Simulated scan of single mutants.
Amino acid sequence: MSVAELGAELSDRVGRVIPHDGYLLLGLDPVTGAGCFVAHERAYSARARQWLEIEEPGVAPPVLALGAGVPPRYSADLHRLMAAEGFGGALRIAARHGGVTWGELVLLRGWGGRPFSAAEATRAGALAGGLARALRGFVAGRPLAPGRGGPGPAVVFVGADDTVRATPTARAALRALVPDARTDEDLFGTLWNVVYTARRGTGVALSRIPAAHGWTALHAQLLDGGAPDEVAVTVQPASGRVLLPAVVAWYGVTARENAVLGHVLDGLPAKGIARRLDLSLYTVHDHLKAIYRKTGVHGRDELAAALGG
């Protein structure tokens, strides 16, 4: 299943209880909170989605209704943007479960349609856990696998005025993430979340993206000595220590299994792991079997290859 197919299926299911005209589905890196995939249909334009990244930092409430007949939330500019884009109502549902926000689904209604009601907002709140499970199932339902020839490392430079400079290699790397992009606005849309997160945070941001060709890492960092807010974004295959925290979260790896997994990346044999963690060899093998089952691999060599170990 592709991201677009996931979005269409979730929209269809949710639409049976909360009718809507369009939707925007966003998956989040469960460790950093940065966007890692998106699907949309009859939703905001690429330029509007970029503006929303600037306007609405932070995590939204579990359920948030916006639009006609609803008390104003956030800025008046947001409501003007919605109207300009042809939307009279939006209902945002945070896909939260187990203390983690795995993504967000935004339901949209056209201008002139009835606003989302309080009853529909209540129904939306009851869907949060199911949405979270669907997003996790989308990622963890596929076996963990090494990259299959995706574009190599590339760097994209984003100026303070959001001008993007990208080499052909960088464009190819981004197109592998957004294969249906028709314009530069669509192509560069995957950058804005990490770019703005880096600007308003510690100067760095990271997202690990489950792409068709394997996991890809977007790493944004403010340029040292450059103009304020200039950002370099590295696009490269995600593996090893960079990928591990996301794999642990998406695939439900326990803390003890994670400890074993870390030593697998270090190349320790099972006996060495047992000694290092003060466990029996049988317990180490049990943890390894659980990791293989959760990640869908068939053994240690396949696991190490998938993680770049």
Score class of each variant (00 low, 15 high):
residue 54 I to A: 10
residue 134 A to E: 10
residue 114 R to W: 14
residue 52 L to T: 14
residue 100 V to I: 14
residue 100 V to G: 03
residue 64 L to N: 01
residue 86 G to L: 05
residue 100 V to R: 11
residue 32 T to Q: 13
residue 63 V to G: 02
residue 33 G to T: 05
residue 36 C to R: 10
residue 120 E to Y: 07
residue 73 R to W: 10
residue 31 V to G: 00
residue 84 A to F: 13
residue 75 S to H: 14
residue 129 G to P: 02
residue 133 R to S: 13
residue 126 A to K: 09
residue 70 V to H: 09
residue 77 D to C: 08
residue 63 V to H: 05
residue 53 E to S: 15
residue 85 E to N: 11
residue 81 L to G: 08
residue 134 A to T: 05
residue 41 E to L: 10
residue 110 G to V: 03
residue 52 L to R: 14
residue 24 L to G: 12
residue 69 G to Y: 12
residue 101 T to Y: 04
residue 62 P to D: 11
residue 61 P to Q: 06
residue 134 A to G: 06
residue 31 V to N: 00
residue 98 G to Q: 09
residue 33 G to V: 01
residue 79 H to M: 12
residue 130 G to M: 00
residue 114 R to C: 11
residue 57 P to V: 12
residue 95 A to F: 01
residue 137 G to P: 07
residue 134 A to N: 04
residue 90 A to L: 14
residue 48 A to T: 14
residue 36 C to N: 15
residue 123 R to P: 02
residue 119 A to S: 13
residue 55 E to K: 04
residue 98 G to E: 10
residue 87 F to M: 08
residue 123 R to F: 02
residue 114 R to P: 15
residue 46 A to C: 09
residue 108 L to K: 02
residue 43 A to L: 13
residue 60 A to L: 15
residue 68 A to G: 11
residue 128 A to G: 09
residue 70 V to A: 08
residue 31 V to F: 07
residue 23 Y to L: 11
residue 54 I to V: 13
residue 104 E to P: 00
residue 95 A to P: 01
residue 51 W to H: 15
